[in-house]
Write a protein that binds this DNA or RNA. Sequence first.
DNA 1: GGTTTGACCCTAA
DNA 2: ATTAGGGCCAAAC
Length: 110
Amino acid sequence: MSFFEEVYKVASEIPEGKVATYSQVAAIVGSPRGAQAVGWALRALPSDTTVPWQRIVNAQGRISIQNMKFPQSLQAELLKAEGIPVSYHDDAYWVELEANLWEDARLQIK
DNA sequence: GGTTTGACCCTAA
DNA sequence: ATTAGGGCCAAAC
């Protein structure tokens, strides 16, 4: 199974109404320092994917997306539609990590 | 195979 | 608090 698939699989496990960070996903797939690689994988997703990529944000809970096919506004709408509060300031969308962070068993063990 | 490029993160100044 | 730099991993050139 390729690294891409690993990332997509983990991303698909994020429950609705929760968010995860890049480093969090990276740690689960076995590359604790590969947060950037995760971003690389998500960047390659097709526009019609079923993977909940919108639930993955950076370490500060900010939507740091910079991809034409996936505008920040779209991600913000998808999140709000799931019940996750999203605010906008400093030219970016933000979510409260503490309150909505995904908790996976594999993270607590490590 | 070496180099470049990211939807990133951490530390030091 | 804000900015700069280096380090990280995997894929595309």
